[in-house]
């Protein structure tokens, strides 16, 4: 990436010596804006934390370990929502990873180039569909299908007991899967297309089949990048609000079944914040937002570090 810098090292040093007053001021202004942006994002975290502090003080450690959420008695435990968030995201990724990688490999390695280009473009555009549209579709189209057709046929599964509903954990997970699929497919396909022809031909030249080529030359080369994309997708799934709020079922308890209604951290905030009049209720919801923010920051930082390490690797091998 350093190759793309507008000024190289030596030029810069020579230039800085000749920097005139105006130039120095210009530099200061740019730096000032950089700091300003840092301040904004630090302020996001700080503001939420300050607003959440009364609830943290009120509930103590019970805020993250408690399983009861009862605003009328001012009892605030986040476990049901942490569980709901983790379960829906886990279901979403468990479905999206194999399907998405398979689809991307098919587009990059097997499909004729024209079809691959058209479908790839379609998938990339789908990544831009607003999440509220995914939610509407999930609620009005997929929900009834789940209730009438899919969930009654799942009763043989462990942890899938309970009455079929047009809402619930599994449905929310499936919608999250559909939502992150375009991103995973697009990134994986781009990575696979970037694997150089010489690596592929190394396998062909040794007598390997096309699938052996994919396994030996393509998959290992794109592994880290795909993991990065998946972790980014995870970050998106964890914090997704609208698509989940439509179909989660709004039940403030730790889900005991795959098809039970539940609540995620984001959907809880969306559902309760405007009506939070009980003592500490609004503050507790901001506390949930702080937890969500911490998880999202960790996941995204991990993803970024992964993606950076990949781009460094790529630079080294070229």
């Amino acid at each position: 990436m350093s190759a793309g810098y507008v000024t190289g090292g030596r030029d810069r040093r020579r230039l800085t010596r000749h920097l005139r007053l105006g130039d120095r001021a210009y530099r200061r202004v740019l730096q000032g804006f950089g700091v300003f942006v840092l301040v904004i994002f630090v302020a996001v975290g700080a503001t939420l934390f300050i607003q959440a502090w009364p609830a943290f003080k009120h509930s103590g450690p019970g805020f993250v370990t408690g399983t009861t959420w009862d605003p009328s008695h001012a009892i605030y435990g986040a476990v049901p929502f942490i569980a709901g968030t983790l379960f829906t995201s886990a279901i979403g990724l468990a479905l999206a990873i194999p399907i998405g990688i398979g689809a991307a490999i098919f587009l990059a390695e097997y499909a004729p180039r024209r079809i691959s280009g058209a479908l790839g473009m379609l998938v990339e555009l789908l990544a831009a569909v607003p999440s509220v549209v995914y939610g509407l579709w999930g609620f009005l189209v997929l929900g009834p299908i789940f209730q009438n057709t899919i969930e009654p046929r799942l009763s043989w599964l462990p942890f899938a007991h309970g009455a079929p509903l047009p809402v619930g954990l599994l449905l929310a997970g499936v919608i999250l899967a559909v939502m992150v699929l375009p991103t995973i497919v697009a990134v994986t396909r781009d990575l696979a297309n970037a694997v150089p022809a010489t690596s592929r031909e190394a396998v062909f030249g040794l007598g390997g089949t096309r699938w052996q080529m994919v396994r030996t030359a393509v998959l290992p080369a794109i592994r880290t990048g795909v993991v990065g994309a998946v972790v980014l997708g995870l970050g998106r799934a964890l914090g997704e609000t609208m698509a989940v709020t439509f179909v989660i079922g709004n039940t403030n308890a730790v889900p005991n079944s795959l098809i039970a209604p539940a609540q995620t951290m984001a959907s809880l905030i969306a559902n309760e914040f405007t009506e939070a009049t009980e003592p500490f209720h609004a503050s507790a919801l901001l506390g949930i937002a702080v937890l969500l923010l911490v998880i999202a920051v960790i996941v995204n930082a991990l993803a970024r570090l992964l993606v950076w390490s990949v781009s460094r690797e790529v630079r080294e091998t070229v």
Binding site: P196, S199, E201, A202, G205, L206, G207, G208, A217, P220
Partner: peptide
Amino acid sequence: TEIRARIGMVFQRPNPFPT
């Protein structure tokens, strides 16, 4: 594939499997 196993090939740029 059988032909390519019997006729080996070395390419312009060294292309060992990087991983």
